[in-house]
Amino acid sequence: MTWRLPVIVWQLLFFVGPLLFMIAMSFFLVKNYRMVEAFEMTSWIKMFGKGYFWDSYFFTLALAAWATIVATCVAFPAAFGLAFKVSDGTRRWIIFLLIIPFFTSYLVRTFSWYVILAESGVINNILGYIGLGPYTMLNTRFGTMVGYMTLTLPLVIILQTLSMANVDKNLIEAAQNLGAGRFQVICKVIIPSAKVGLIIGAVFCFILSFGDFVAPYYLGGSKPPTLSILIIDTTKSGQQWPRAAVVAVMMTTTLMIVAFTAIKLAYSKKT
């Protein structure tokens, strides 16, 4: 049992403790830009009564869901190729290359998209040579999605690759020997066998996108704001930390529901 102690202490210190404090903070009041301890529902009533909070909530939810679908679909062929079509050495190298973007700041990587996506940027310049464009890509949902992919795609590819690489090759051969086509092998053998990794990849993508501030602000033009931007707005103006805590509690609750549901789905017996 003692080996569990560090994990429990870590969870208490860095997750449960701050979470409880955040929940408590959502009942505090702000007076003269200073937080005052209290137990009032004011911030909850205020935020739940505001249309813009719900607009931001559902917008963020939809955006993160889209990012998850896009990342999962884009990552799948890449991960499939890495798991089944290349040698172990090549796979290791490519996984290493996928890790390299994490060596630099996400903010810096996001800003570098300015040069590429701007109307006077690289893509529009290339399209200009063939008489197309310019297209507006910055400060759009497309821009936000590019940011989300920058953040999540390498991770999703890695998680999918690792799960697919562990699929029992005998099952694939058996399916092929029994006359299954390529599509059937993917749908009936590979996806069910790699289900846990595929779902965990999707969950990570959802969690990271749902809470991301950088992509929707700098590439999406904060138009409309996501919940993370709403937190910044709420704290920046009027120092309404309790209201920001309400938003944060709602975000955490949503993420917990999504994560628990997904994990339940991943480990369910039915395939």
Binding site: K50, G51, Y52, D55, S56, F59, S222, K223, P224, P225, L230, D233, S237, G238
Partner: peptide, 9 residues
């Protein structure tokens, strides 16, 4: 500020 948030949304 509230109106500004509504406007942004």
């Amino acid at each position: 500020n509230d109106f500004w948030s509504e406007y942004k949304n």
